[in-house]
Nucleic acid binder design. Structure first.
Lengths: 212, 212
DNA sequence: GGATCCCTCGGGGATGCCCCCGAGGACGCC
DNA sequence: GGCGTCCTCGGGGGCATCCCCGAGGGATCC
């Protein structure tokens, strides 16, 4: 019996490419181009594997994964992305994806990856495999989030976001209804904990981690 | 006679999707996944249209366009991108592209767009058409560059780039071998001409226009 | 020789950023 | 009750940023 695959990607051209690549190897049981429809159809059709684009509008691929797994965590997801940024990989795997491949993959390799995930195994592109192993080795289960971001208090993260967006200390104070001195305290703590030395580096740091 | 199309995209899956979408409508005379090979093959095979991904590694789609047009400016390019950011559109059109569509386009529309460009016309996605017209209306032919950037002197642009990269006034002064006061003068002039009020906004402005 | 830019600098000042110091109140944990 | 963490806020100081003012030298154009 052929592997039953569901496709989620907002680009018709890419879905067509995947269909063409997998047509001989698996059975495509459905497609969706946005979050809500994807969740509903996946739960209805129960595919063996969901092939999921990471960068969906309306919440991203993670929203689809979370929505489906809230009802049935047994349906395996294979994430497909143009990005191989570590943040994206980590986020998807922590959300429950059983694999992550980039769109540079060839048709034959993609078919193999789909069958592997359907069989219960885990798949990563060679360039990502080493990174993923590093990231999860020595981490107690249940640990999530970036360890540096983890060290910040809730208030500090709130201030961090506003500062990274270009707010002045005074603006942040007004926005959060506290004094400028309090904002200074939080920024100071953030800079110390992240080992940075100016709000400019902070902005750069936040952008790198997509915290906006 | 069928339109002869050349494909440039670093993602095998996307090329496969485009092949599948266009197979009945045009003839694919070649493909490439990186800049140098693309230039060489396009100049050799002289397609009626080159379908070009904007975001190529190794210089981007603009490098391919520039390389080909340096030898033969008559070969028309249709840019294909996941982005519909104004900066990307402007850059590609100024570089010489005869059209710009996003990957959300369907197969039939893409085939139409390819034939239109091959026929000498210009094609833009509906969401971009209005923007492009606005950008080029009232511009004397031969004018290039952003009018706001245009108003800056060479020295001011140099300072702008360094400031946007996070340099302090003192660092910029050291880098350019002038005093801090001179840097202040230039920054002041830049902020006034661009109608901005802080170096943070300046950084944001520069990033939006990909001036780094 | 003027007129006009551009680049170069200075003084002085208002404000923002970042740090040091200390401190009080709220909350949860043992 | 004590202990720790978090959030709040102040004084004070050093440096950065951004503005005002003026000014000299060099290049270009008429």
């Amino acid at each position: 019996m052929r592997t039953r695959v569901f496709l989620v990607d907002d680009h018709e051209l890419i879905r067509a490419g995947i269909r063409a690549a997998l047509a001989d190897a698996v059975e495509i049981v459905g497609e969706a181009d946005e979050v809500d429809a994807a969740i509903a159809m996946i739960l209805e059709r129960r595919p063996d594997v969901v092939l999921l684009d990471v960068h969906l509008p309306g919440g991203g691929g993670r929203a689809v994964l979370a929505g489906v797994h809230a009802v049935d965590p047994a349906i395996p997801f294979l994430a497909l992305s143009v990005s191989d940024a570590p943040e994206d990989v980590i986020a998807l795997v922590r959300a429950g994806a059983r694999g992550y491949v980039t769109k540079t993959i060839g048709a034959a390799d993609l078919a193999d990856a789909v069958r592997t995930v359907a069989g219960g195994d885990v798949v990563f592109s060679p360039r990502l495999a080493g990174f993923v192993l590093d990231a999860f080795r020595n981490l107690p289960p249940g640990t999530s989030e970036d360890p540096e971001l983890e060290s910040l208090t809730p208030r500090e993260r709130q201030v961090l976001r506003l500062i990274a967006r270009g707010y002045s200390y005074r603006d942040v104070g007004t926005e959060l209804s506290v004094s400028v001195k309090t904002v200074e305290s939080h920024v100071s703590a953030v800079l110390r904990k992240l080992q940075l030395s100016s709000r400019h580096e902070l902005t750069h740091w936040a952008h790198e981690r997509r915290l906006l």
